[in-house]
């Protein structure tokens, strides 16, 4: 019997006659012995699960008219996601920069550059500066302990690893049995 036929019998491997066929084949075939010999019976008869009856209908209902249209839609959505992410990054970075300037120079400094706090643009700049200042402070407060903790934990790990990696001292011989 050929290997492929034996493989197709796995599904009913709990039948004694089939098991004898498989066992006899394995005894004479190195390739099957390698693969099936060590295989638990449970894996010889893998159970397949039935998909839900409405699965195909749900898949078909979600499809755009053609694959080309689907690809174009996917490309547009992906581009939109990238723009949104880039927009958020610019906003956060802008806030961080203006907050840092406000913290290092003066809160009204960015507003003064844009016509003073009396002007509409200046008021917006002041509001953004006040919103950005805590961001800088939060970043500073988080990053310093984070870097310090990483250095301490990393250093301790390296030290412990070196201790473990040192060669062991030879054991003291008992009753002069060393070398036996």
């Amino acid at each position: 019997m050929r290997c492929q036929q034996i493989r197709s019998l796995r599904a009913s491997a709990d039948d004694p006659a089939t098991r004898t066929l498989i066992t006899d084949h394995i005894a004479t075939c190195a390739a099957c012995a390698d693969e099936l010999g060590a295989l638990p019976l449970a894996l010889m008869q893998p159970a397949s699960v039935k998909p839900p009856p409405a699965l195909a209908a749900k898949i078909m209902a979600a499809l755009p008219p053609t694959p080309a249209i689907a690809a174009a839609q996917e490309q547009r959505a992906s581009r939109r996601r990238r723009w949104v992410a880039a927009g958020w990054a610019v906003v956060l970075l802008g806030l961080l920069i203006i907050g840092t300037v406000g913290l290092l120079v003066d809160s009204s400094y960015p507003a003064a550059l844009l016509g003073g706090v009396q002007s509409a643009v200046g008021r917006v700049a002041l509001a953004l500066t006040l919103a950005g200042k805590p961001m800088f402070a939060v970043l500073l407060n988080i990053s310093v302990p984070l870097v310090l903790t990483t250095l301490i934990v990393g250093g301790a790990a390296v030290w412990a690893w070196r201790q473990l990696a040192q060669p062991l001292q030879p054991l003291v011989a008992i009753d002069g049995q060393e070398g036996q």
Partner: peptide
């Protein structure tokens, strides 16, 4: 598994080109 199967076929359809 059902959600994944739907998404897999949608991805196959989208990337068929």
């Amino acid at each position: 598994a059902e959600d994944a199967a739907q998404e897999i076929f949608l991805r196959v359809y989208t990337k068929l080109t």
